[in-house]
Design a protein around this nucleic acid. Structure first.
Ligand SMILES: [Mg+2]
Length: 235
DNA sequence: GCGACAG
DNA sequence: ATCTTGTCGC
């Protein structure tokens, strides 16, 4: 798929933060007009020892949620994890994977925040801007914002406000299980984000696209590290 | 200065 | 997120 290389990634933290503020003005929280045909999930794994980042993008038919295809790549990790700057650590490898994708992806679910971010540009939003494709941030914990406790009943949701503005919903995707922080990334609204996450939640905490991407990236990492060890420590 | 803090 | 062995519970 096409990628808008809006900026490079070898920049200072200060410049990274400035870019986030600048790019957040481009985010559009629009309604998705058509029902998606292909939904993708994306996730990352790391090897601390080898300083590598592994990424997987898994494609699913919607609403059947049948797996269509899987893409992957890995590269050197060039940024430490800094809360608020996650996209500068994870986006480069993810974009290199999306570049290989032949299918037309209608919606991407990403492990991390969308606009629920100190400067309104979490990983999902940043990816959405580069790909000009609808994205949803599906985070397992809170980065910013305040909300009431929610009853842990599947389908329940509670608004998350940051600086007196709605930024996400806490969504229960399964009874009696810790809820998710769902925020639009780009080209989708709050209602659409919650709706598609729930429609992709098939009895587990994480919606199928990110859950399977998470499992596949763990396997991919294991496989690549096995190859590397074979080269480094020949029998 | 202190505490919070996606993955 | 990683590293790392076992353990508890559905
Ligand atoms: Mg992840």
């Amino acid at each position: 798929m096409h990628i808008d290389r809006i900026h490079t990634w070898d920049i200072t933290y200060k410049e990274a933060m400035r870019l986030q503020s600048e790019l957040s003005a481009r985010i559009k929280l629009t309604r998705m007009k058509k029902i998606p045909k292909i939904v993708a999930g994306a996730d990352i794994a790391y090897s601390k020892r080898l300083n590598l980042s592994f990424g997987v993008v898994a494609l699913f038919e919607f609403p059947a949620l049948e797996q269509i295809n899987v893409y992957s790549a890995y590269q050197k990790t060039n940024m430490p994890y800094i809360p608020g700057l996650l996209s500068f650590r994870e986006a480069p490898v993810l974009l290199s994977i999306f570049e290989q994708v032949e299918e037309n992806i209608d919606l991407i679910m990403i492990d991390g925040q969308g606009i629920a971010h100190p400067r309104g540009l979490g990983l999902a939003s940043h990816i959405g801007i580069f790909l000009e494709t609808p994205t949803i941030g599906c985070a397992k914990s809170r980065l910013v914002g305040e909300h009431k406790d929610i009853d842990l009943i599947r389908g329940n949701k509670e608004p998350v406000n940051y600086k007196d503005k709605l930024c996400a919903y806490v969504v229960c995707t399964r009874d009696n299980v810790k809820p998710l922080y769902i925020s639009p990334g780009h080209l989708i609204d709050f209602q659409g984000a919650c709706e598609y996450v729930l429609k992709c939640s098939d009895g587990f905490r994480l919606p199928k696209p990110t859950r399977i991407a998470d499992q596949l990236v763990a396997e991919y990492k294991k496989q690549i590290i096995g190859q590397i060890n074979k080269v480094i420590y020949p029998p």
